[in-house]
């Protein structure tokens, strides 16, 4: 049952989490922990990426060849698996971004109209 809940959350976040991971890697290779910290910081501590969603997502993106990985030693002597964006990943990111843009614009449009009607 617990596993099922995890799966549901993954499905819920899938598109957006993928987008955020790809965007994060746009700034350079990063390991899993680094990615989760980056998303957290950039969202102003609002978005907490669940570890149980992050790693499945990373492995899935790797399987789709949008990211590639390699083991490196980090600044504080910690061995870690670093992910980087591939060429296919960059194309995917561009697509996802424009889709996200359209989606937010669309939703924004709906909300604005609703707001206007409420005012009048």
């Amino acid at each position: 049952m617990a596993k099922q809940q995890y799966r549901n959350r993954i499905e819920l976040l899938q598109g957006t989490l993928d987008l955020m991971i790809l965007q994060t890697l746009q700034w350079g290779p990063q390991h899993g922990y680094g990615i989760s910290q980056a998303i957290r910081n950039r969202s102003g501590e609002i978005l907490q990426v669940d570890t149980g969603s992050l790693y499945p997502a990373l492995h899935r993106l790797e399987k789709q060849k949008w990211v590639a990985s390699e083991w490196k030693v980090s600044g504080n002597k910690q061995r870690a698996k670093y992910y980087r964006l591939t060429a296919a990943g960059k194309r995917q990111l561009a697509q996802e971004r424009s889709r996200w843009q359209r989606l937010t614009e669309a939703i924004g449009g709906v909300l604005d109209q609703a707001g206007n009607e409420a005012k009048s």
């Binding site: 390991h31 899993g32 922990y33 680094g34 570890t51 790693y55 980090s74 910690q78 061995r79 870690a80 698996k81």
Partner: peptide, 9 residues
């Protein structure tokens, strides 16, 4: 190892 390194960090 990947998850362990996540924990360590």
């Amino acid at each position: 190892e990947e998850l362990e390194s996540h924990l360590t960090m």
